[in-house]
């Protein structure tokens, strides 16, 4: 039996779309993370003045307090161009990229008319959504 490769042009196009999407997702989060870090250093109250001191570092890496994570905090922070909020937006975009990739794959398999894999990929996606939901609740 000849090994099957997804070599028809439609599948190839979808793979290229996925690859492009990932690339821009990665560049987008890189940009947000770098800008957010620079902004955080510019405003002395976040990381300490002029690159910070040993005491600032101690506060940043050992404090047990959990980080604020509400959407309203994020929206508010982004509007005010706060460094920490920009970083969080970059991290969220990074976390979302694999999920978006799974979603796009469902469409790709549907275009290939590959029923089994539309089902498999949809199950993967649902499991991811369940994890998100449970994580939020827990």
């Amino acid at each position: 039996m000849k090994p099957v490769t997804p070599s028809d042009s439609k599948a190839l196009q979808v793979e290229i779309v996925i690859s492009e999407l990932l690339r821009w997702g990665v560049y987008g989060s890189l940009l947000l993370l770098v800008v957010g870090t620079v902004v955080s250093y510019i405003h002395p109250e976040t990381y300490g003045a002029g690159g910070g001191s040993g005491a600032d570092l101690h506060r940043l890496i050992t404090e047990g307090a959990t980080f604020p994570r509400t959407l309203s905090w994020l929206g508010h922070g982004l509007l005010q161009l706060q460094g920490q909020a920009i970083i969080v937006a970059g991290l969220l975009l990074l976390i979302a990229t694999p999920v978006i990739r799974v979603l796009v794959s469902i469409i790709a398999f549907a275009l290939e008319k590959d029923r089994a894999f539309v089902v498999i990929t949809t199950v993967v996606f649902l499991l991811l959504m369940i994890s998100f939901a449970l994580g939020k609740a827990g």
Partner: peptide, 21 residues
């Protein structure tokens, strides 16, 4: 990456993701 995305979301909601680190 796909597996970690689910874990990351959980850690994120818990507030364990410290932007500075």
């Amino acid at each position: 990456g796909v597996t970690a995305a689910t874990s990351a979301a959980v850690y994120f909601m818990r507030g364990d993701v410290q932007p500075f680190v």
